[in-house]
Design a binder for these strands. Structure first.
Lengths: 341, 341
DNA sequence: TGACAGTATGGTAGCGCTACCATATTTTTT
DNA sequence: AAAAAATATGGTAGCGCTACCATACTGTCA
């Protein structure tokens, strides 16, 4: 008789034999011990300890049809924003039975569609998506799948399932208001990698300035390139070399703001006296700069953490709560770069 | 008769039926089509297309005893260094049959040990570890496991299996030499999060300065806190407030260097004239700063990418190559912050 | 020509677990 | 007290795949 090479580890049947119960009871114990009599619970618990048994997730997934994988789609690995989110996700998932599977959409909707159907095919336990601008096709695909889907980093009234984020338009608006309060009149903007969220910040910037009768399209300096300090410097140089005049610049990312700031330094332009600067995301170094740089603080870590927590609730609780919209907010951190004397 | 709820997707048996072959042949086709006759190859390939068949990794893993998971242990998610490495890893793994599973050791050896045995229990296809300072226990555990193990980001003559990285001592040495060439005489250092790699940079700094008869222990400013620009500013402030005199500072991380630079600006200390500054890792913004900041460029993306490529070679090739040590080098990027006139 | 090796394919028993049903036991109802 | 319902447990057939063996079909050489 042939004996297939087993893993060498104890299996659920070993535990069942040791505890003198059926393997089904052990399986039940693993899922929810409370459905068993206390007597059985003790026997099984003892046997598991003695055999040092660890369930095999692969076998579990195969038998149940459900994996313990929480899929995460992010558009980029290089952006610190996503490192922070991933840190939150990983921290929240630690100690649970779930695993994180990350995939990179590279800011490409077609790739996002492909990855979503790939994930759906693998029957994940839940999915975390970046932004709220998935294709109709993907939305349809996900709506009836029966597993939790969390969209993060943005806001919408009509999520696929749940959404955790904040309003980029509002954040932009609060920046403009702050700059006006500080006495800045002509506000330029610098943007890179025009993804959905940056585009929304831009929309907020435009709306707010229009309402204040201060919008000037020649003060927008946009680039499709990835955001970076070097690009920020270049765009700020373009802006300063242009014919239009401005006394403050709203950078839609902190690295752009840092670059813009360095360009001012290189040209001897005094910040905040002659030029106000505001960034977005409040990276750690914004506080360390001299002068320190005003920015919008976003709770990226918290977004990732809560995304997982909501998923766990949704799975454990079984039924879906009514709450599906979670606005995590933002805060304007006023620093020296907009502190006109 | 009861019919268990299948996944709905086509299985290997569906393909076999459609192609009018045995399921074993389909399985062989998946592993290596060339062992089959051309006729069978065509039939199976056609059937797979028609049924839109995708193999189920869970079932595969269960049957074969091996998962398609490549485990990755990193000490931190917040550090940009590791984002870049992860980007390289993910890019290299894309399109292959393997999946990445990331875990966070939090710079803790005990946690690393725990995670390694956890991974080993899951029979990963390969493991990527950060640094070369794993515990004896973990080394033993991994040496005879039969799957590839890559240690990254450091250098050693005695890897568990393979190592891809560079010498931190050498990098430090080249910084000191550069500073001396530029006329700096008294070189302080600023270090944070004293992990193994930072410690090796410190060792290189000390050795080199001792050889040059220029070592002064009072010029070392160390902190166990995580590296950040704010910490860099604080340590630089401490250094400048101290009694010892120095004309250059070697920061063991770029964010520290940025902070040190800002502290100089705040105090009106001219960089590079009165103070030379060097960082480590060459983050993108170092080039954008004004004055731009000298740093050691490390090929983090490449390290991650190559780690996976070596693993794939090792798995495909079956036999292990003799090559196990891969020095990916570093380069000193000279910029304005050490360009004394 | 037959014996033997080599090559190409197929059949089937698991891998370790859970879903589904069956059965035994206890509790509730009439 | 018997019947019905609820609860607790066990047996077993898969989940989709691969490892292992068996078998059929070549070609080679005495």
């Amino acid at each position: 008789m042939v004996k297939r090479q087993g893993s060498g580890r104890a299996t659920i049947n070993d535990v069942a034999r040791q505890a003198e119960v059926g393997s089904t009871s052990v399986s039940r114990f693993l899922r929810d011990p409370s459905v068993l009599s206390v007597k059985l619970q003790k026997k099984i618990s003892k046997a598991i300890d003695e055999l040092n048994y660890i369930p095999d997730p692969k076998a579990r997934a195969l038998a149940s049809g459900y994996s313990n994988v929480i899929g995460v789609l992010i558009p980029s690995f290089s952006n610190i924003v996503f490192s922070d989110i991933l840190r939150g996700i990983h921290d929240a998932v630690e100690g649970t039975a779930y695993q994180i599977q990350i995939a990179n959409t590279r800011y490409d909707t077609a790739e996002e569609d492909r990855l979503i159907s790939l994930f759906v095919g693998q029957k994940p336990r839940a999915l975390i998506l970046t932004g709220v601008d998935q294709s109709i096709r993907s939305r349809e695909l996900l709506k009836e799948r029966g597993f939790p889907v969390v969209q993060i980093l943005d806001k919408t009234d009509d999520p696929i399932d749940m959404v955790i984020g904040f309003s980029h338009e509002q954040a932009a608006t609060s920046v403009i208001q702050h700059l006006f309060e500080r006495g800045y009149k002509k506000i330029a903007c610098i943007a890179a990698r025009m993804d959905e969220r940056v585009t929304r910040r831009l929309a907020g910037y435009r709306d707010c300035l229009r309402k204040l009768n201060a919008y000037d399209s020649s003060l927008e300096f946009l680039s499709a390139e990835a955001s970076s300090a070097q690009l920020g410097r270049k765009l700020m140089a373009d802006a300063l070399d242009g014919k239009s005049d401005f006394d403050a610049v709203f950078c839609f990312n902190d690295d752009l703001a840092l670059g813009a700031f360095f360009e001012c330094q290189a040209r001897g332009i005094s910040v905040p006296q002659d030029m106000g600067i505001v960034g977005f995301n409040d990276l750690e170094m914004m506080a360390a700069a001299y002068p320190s740089l005003t920015s919008i603080r976003t709770n990226r870590y918290e977004i990732g953490k809560q995304a997982v927590e909501r998923i766990l609730q949704s799975i454990e609780g079984g039924h879906r709560k009514n709450e599906r919209l979670f606005d995590i907010g933002f805060s304007l951190i006023e620093r020296q770069s907009t502190q006109r004397k």
